[in-house]
Amino acid sequence: MSPKWAMAIDLDRCTGCGACVVACVAENNIPVVGEAEVEKGRLMQWLRVARYWEGEYPEAQAIYLPVPCMQCERAPCETVCPVYATYHNEDGLNAMVYNRCVGTRYCANNCPYSVRVFNWYDHKWEKPLDEQLSPDLTTRSRGVMEKCTFCIQRIRRAKERAAEETREIRDGEVVPACVQTCPPGALLFGDLSDPHSEITRKLKDPRRFRLMEHLGTEPRVVYLKRQKGAGR
């Protein structure tokens, strides 16, 4: 049975520290573009922690919303690509084939969550920074789209290991970089097709909701709503 990889993001626990973003950048060879480019809206990060304000000063409260790729089951980005550079792979993930991408950027427009990023330039890692590049995945050239993959390289590795040992992947064996790093443990990753997995149990929580659910994209990223009240 093919897995249904999913992520749960507990907004009650998220402190907006941004460690997940850093971990993602380190894991996935994401270029750091510098202040000037960020100002122009060319941030390359696959995961953003959106910050919203609630209430007026001095009662203002920040709400943090980590937004990775939603890995939609009905991904709008996939249908519009003229060259099948983004498609649904056998694991039910929204995969991106860099070599096939010609950079029409239609997928980015059709993503309601705007989580896809584009390589506006060729990015360089000056010595000795190139030493930090992960050998598990490529760096991307200018002109192609990229986005969060749920750390597909880690999923692949776990699959291979499980196959070698002729067993199923254990719950908690696959952990994307952001989930691994999150200090307050707001992120959880797992297989929804396994009825006993932690994420299956966690997502029975009545606080669960999905981003822009009304668009019918059926995201695999599920949020748990922040509770209001004293002590929070």
Binding site: V80, C81, Y84, R100, V102, G103, R105, Y106, R142
Partner: peptide, 28 residues
């Protein structure tokens, strides 16, 4: 306008080396 202009021919309808054709469901 496309990011990799030098690969524009990926959109011409012919099968690539893996026998994949362009996606004619795309409005483009």
């Amino acid at each position: 306008h496309i990011g990799r202009n030098w690969r524009f021919y990926y959109m011409i309808p012919y099968p690539n080396s893996r026998q994949l054709w362009p996606n004619l469901r795309s409005p483009l």
